[in-house]
Design a protein around this nucleic acid. Structure first.
Lengths: 151, 151
DNA sequence: CCTATTTAGGACTGAAATGGTCCGGTATCC
DNA sequence: GGATACCGGACCATTTCAGTCCTAAATAGG
């Protein structure tokens, strides 16, 4: 698996929809109909995205949301971080001292490297990238992390 | 987040322990004490790893487990796949037809690319790599996926 | 052949996370 | 002032996850 939560998946859809209306302010109900995601869920997403600083909100009649920055400057990693916290494949990659085996675990340092590589890859893709017409063919796997693991 | 399950985390520890005793057969209880993971959990892990074809098992007295292949030939992606199914960041990256928006979703193709890039990166790191002394310094993020996303 | 050892398979349970909903409050526009 | 729309939070049902246990089957050794 190694799956993103559904919320994050929907969150990307909402962000893409916001990127479409670059400068217009769009309200939650509007976004719900245009994305097909349930209205309460959209509201929840927008709240978190707002707190994460990815969108700006305007209250009151004719209020709504818009991207806080150009879509080019918002990465997938940003969206993930706003919705479910920073990327960290393992517990130990995120926090110190939680694992009792920490001091003797050879794996930990390696996980860190892998973790950062993946985060870096996700940070490299913007919402604007996601909003272009999709490629129809697969891709080459990303080049070597392994070479960076040796001591 | 984007976190691996704890089982997978422990699974890597167990695989690393098996890689240490390259040719010896080790039983579940033994691995439990040397890794610090609870015995029933170790048994569960080994069963799944066996079914995934990553370890060979021998029943009966003096039985136990050993790696099915050299540690160099077993990747992290293999371990993840054996323990929690193949890497797939989003539902739609794995199966067709589950998402009602599928036909109109511009994001889907992009997720596939990202997904495969991450899988490729994980496939590039072997259990043997993980078993070396850990690096003490961070890393460079993985190089660009973004360039491969354009249509 | 008999027994001790050790894996195979599956059922089961308690806890946690997840997805989704709703409500009272506040700010803004007309 | 009234309608609109976001804000913050609480809340619940469902699913998933981690972890345990039990019975059956296979092997080694005496």
């Amino acid at each position: 698996m190694l799956r993103l939560s559904k919320l994050t998946d929907y969150g990307m859809v909402v962000m893409a929809a916001l990127a479409d209306a670059e400068d217009d302010t769009r309200n939650a109900a509007d976004l719900a109909t245009s994305t097909g995601v349930a209205p309460p869920t959209v509201r929840k997403l927008l709240k978190r995205l707002n707190r994460g600083g990815l969108v700006n909100s305007a209250r009151g009649a004719r209020g709504g949301y818009r991207l806080a920055r150009p879509a080019e400057d918002i990465s997938i990693a940003d969206v993930i971080a706003a919705l479910e916290g920073p990327v960290s494949l393992t517990e130990c990659a995120a926090h110190d001292g939680l694992c009792s085996m920490e001091s003797v675990c050879r794996l930990r340092g390696h996980w860190r490297v892998i973790n950062d590589a993946i985060r870096g890859a996700l940070a490299d893709v913007s919402v604007a990238d996601m909003n272009r017409p999709a490629p129809n063919m697969p891709l080459q796997p990303a080049p070597g992390i392994a070479s960076r693991l040796g001591s």
